[in-house]
């Protein structure tokens, strides 16, 4: 890696990602949505905002700064996790399973 100091960005990014998740959670909990639809729509939009932010971040990391492969991989994993969790509801698989048992 050309700029090893960029590795310091990794913990920052993880903290940021966690912070974003907490923020989404608080927003959803704070302003009680009027309906289930509204809550679902809001969750989807929040996830989208997170994804967009991560994409912009990875774009500038890759083009503006120097190459930081580990950082890009972590951002990609974060984005995939967001899509799995908020768009594809991977955890509902567990719920479906639990109902059967």
């Amino acid at each position: 890696m050309e700029n090893p100091e960029l590795l310091f960005g990794i913990p920052l990014l993880i903290i940021g990602a966690l912070g974003l998740l907490v923020a989404i959670e608080m927003l959803l909990a704070g302003a009680a949505p009027k309906s289930k639809t509204e809550a679902a729509v809001r969750a989807g939009i929040m996830a989208f905002v997170g994804l967009a932010a991560a994409t912009v971040a990875e774009y500038f990391i890759a083009t503006g700064m120097s190459q930081a492969m580990a950082l890009l991989i972590i951002i990609a994993l974060f984005k995939a996790a967001v899509i799995f969790q908020f768009f594809m509801h991977v955890m509902r698989l567990q719920h479906a399973h639990a109902q059967e048992e």
Binding site: E58, Y59, A62, Q67, L72, I73, K79, A80
Partner: peptide, 10 residues
């Protein structure tokens, strides 16, 4: 999400 950095960014 994985192909984009692999092909465009890294």
């Amino acid at each position: 999400v994985f192909f984009y950095p692999a092909l465009y960014l890294i």
